[in-house]
Design a protein around this nucleic acid. Sequence first.
DNA 1: AACGTAAGCAACCGCGGTGCG
DNA 2: TCGCACCGCGGTTGCTTACGT
Length: 243
Amino acid sequence: MKMMQDETRKGPWTEQEDILLINFVNLFGDRRWDFIAKVSGLNRTGKSCRLRWVNYLHPGLKRGKMTPQEERLVLELHARWGNRWSRIARKLPGRTDNEIKNYWRTHTRKKAQERKSVVSPSLSSSNCSSSSNITTVNSSSPPGTGEASFYDTGGLEQVASAGKNGEAVQGGEKGYSMDDIWRDIENTIEPVCDGFSEEGCNFSYPSLASPSWEYRPDILWSISGEESKMFLPYDDGTMLLTG
DNA sequence: AACGTAAGCAACCGCGGTGCG
DNA sequence: TCGCACCGCGGTTGCTTACGT
């Protein structure tokens, strides 16, 4: 990892970055992303930090395949609200808008294919030239076109609950999984999630951005840009407070 | 066993909304 | 009241992994 302090890093997050971010969110809460981005020395944008937190690092996130109940809920809510992913996500504790969005995309694509094969098994290419709008919702199709056709399918029919890999182990964290990281965190930090059971920890309040641990102004020490140097991340992700 | 394709997931981008000076 | 900075959302893209031939 090259340390060009000036350029903003992009692309996949490393474990060390994750740990660093977790630490800083613990300290400052999960709202002041720009501040955290600067102070942490991550060389990431606030946006990027927020996204990483919300979609991957937030405690209480469920991992793995959607349950049939969740799938049904997604379909129902999507039928009702359309692409209001964050809104839908609030009704699914532990699921993120991104996750639901991705799920929907996959589901939609699958559906499109199923339909295509049902509607025109042998029709193949005869006269569907101009009116074949059901559609392959592929990535290049403009949003809305193909999608709308699913709103009215009564899309509630069972999703082939078959996904490919049941586990959806994200990102191939080799050696040091998120579970490990969280185990570490739990051992070292006390998240102020009290009273939050797995399900109590739902994010019904405005979006995942809600702090799952208290914002602690008392430990905010009024850090300025310069003072951020006080934090020197060790290689193993722990923090050294200097100064 | 190798190759091609599809599916799934993580991350980025752009835009609109909101709060603050 | 206006302008600016930041945050959050939805859309899109790119990469990795799984599967089929």
